[in-house]
């Protein structure tokens, strides 16, 4: 199945070598993104597999409050993971911003974190500040638009998961 998105990684459009798998299909040697439930169920087998593994953190969880999956559940599996894809079901649901920062700042995860789902123009730069390094963008988005959006605000007031310390700190280097 061809991708419905174009992948933006480190400021450039690129070929996505990752594939999303379903719950049942046997995994190939290709870098593959699976669900959290599959990761938990097959962790032992997956640990023995000699290929890159990613997981997608879903925003629509079970439960009536639809909180979505909990980033804390990834902690025991981080050594197996090269990628976490965070799903944003709608631009209004900003829960994934926190998940990204927890991965970077509390779990010291250094693999790829990508944003999938509905992500708006003016969210890209904020996502990058939270530690998201790759974006699954709608095919209509132009590279220049993306680049421009990333540089609209040249500085930040507060520290996050990137290198910017924030004005309150920078003024007293």
């Amino acid at each position: 199945m061809p991708n419905k998105y174009q992948l933006m990684r480190e400021g450039a459009l690129c070929q996505d070598e990752w594939i999303y798998s379903d719950e049942a299909t046997a995994l190939s040697e290709a870098p593959t993104i699976i669900s959290l439930s599959r990761l938990k169920a097959e962790a032992d087998d997956l640990r023995a597999r000699n290929a890159k593994l990613g997981v997608q953190l879903l925003a629509d969880g079970n439960g009536k409050t639809q909180l979505g999956e909990d980033v804390q559940e990834l902690e025991p599996y981080l050594d197996m993971l090269s990628l976490v894809s965070i799903a944003f079901p709608t631009y209004r649901n900003g829960r994934g911003f926190s998940a990204a920062r927890v991965l970077r700042e509390q779990f010291n995860f250094d693999g790829e974190i990508r944003a999938s789902g509905e992500v708006l123009h003016d969210q890209w730069a904020m996502m990058r500040r939270c530690g998201i390094t790759a974006f699954e963008l709608a095919p209509t988005v132009r590279l220049e638009t993306f680049t421009e959006a990333m540089s609209e605000l040249s500085d930040a007031y507060q520290p996050a998961a990137d290198d910017q310390r924030g004005a309150l700190w920078q003024r007293h280097k």
């Binding site: 631009y91 649901n93 900003g94 911003f97 500040r129 507060q158 996050a160 004005a167």
Partner: peptide, 16 residues
């Protein structure tokens, strides 16, 4: 004022 600055364009807390 410190809270104003810290909360302005906060990357994590703009889509609460």
């Amino acid at each position: 004022e410190i809270i104003r600055q810290w909360s302005t364009f906060h990357p994590e807390f703009t889509y609460l």
